[in-house]
Write a protein that binds this DNA or RNA. Structure first.
Lengths: 144, 144
DNA sequence: TTGCGTGCAAAGGTTTTGCATGGCA
DNA sequence: TGCCATGCAAAACCTTTGCACGCAA
């Protein structure tokens, strides 16, 4: 069934490579396009959109929107399926994505399901906030 | 300081009224515009965008994007600040927003802060999933 | 050779900006 | 009266669609 995922083309490979290289943060279509352009591999935006759609269906990328942006953000996610078992923490300052695997999470989920009747979709859910690094940086910026 | 929020105009009031009437769900700019039009109160979309921006700054509305839509969704949020103290559960099926106040939440937040160094922004964070009502409906649709 | 992949151009939406006019205080 | 608010038109974006050509299998 997976053999039907399509041809191996250099465009597809270039897009996937870039996503994997940047798997710790999200990227936009225009960033992908700009990077490939500067790297000497021109790929039309249409193609980028089409590949991202397919990767999304295959569960190989996650899609968000971030405050202050109108364009969608994409981020590579490992295909091992483990991302449906933990929370994702997205730093609002630096954009970095953290995968939070911890028993408190599954505990909370089962609590919410059994007590509040709500089945959480961990794949889609992102907790926003500020990460450790950016918290320390903040403390240095109070002089504003 | 709050006196600088601007004039009281009928456009502003109409937008706010509509948001409050629909506080249990999210609305888009075009929905607001269509409703006001049908209600005999024409308000230009520019004005709607500008008011939503202000309300967002004041923390009186929340802004999301929902899968499969290209337009932003807005939802009124009470100004009493309590929404920074609980999780928000958004049902992916019916779009309803639930406010989850429960000690497990604050427990998880302090755990994540102390153990993982991440400070969660509850105002901005939405847990996606499927609510009780929609789960029961799903069970009736398995015949597809 | 076959059929998917690609990329340009154009269309379709949403959101923002400029500018002249209107209306609250 | 002084400013902010409003709304139209146009611009700026992001994303999708149509279509002819290219290329992997």
């Amino acid at each position: 069934m997976n053999s039907g995922s399509g041809y191996k083309t250099k465009q597809r490979q270039a897009i996937l490579d870039y996503l994997i290289q940047n798997k710790e943060k999200h990227v936009t279509v225009s960033k992908i396009s700009d990077y490939l352009e500067s790297d000497g591999n021109h790929v039309g935006v249409t193609t980028i959109y089409r590949h991202l759609d397919k990767l999304l269906e295959q569960g190989l990328v996650r899609k968000y929107t971030v405050d202050g942006t109108t364009s969608a953000c994409f981020q590579y996610t490992d295909p091992d399926g483990c991302c449906s078992e933990h929370f994702h923490l997205k730093c609002e300052k630096c954009g970095k994505l953290y995968h939070l695997s911890c028993e408190h999470v599954s505990e909370l989920c089962s609590h919410i399901y059994s007590e509040h009747g709500f089945r959480i979709n961990l794949c889609r859910t992102v907790l926003y906030g500020v990460c450790e690094n950016c918290i320390s940086e903040e403390k240095g910026e109070i002089s504003e």
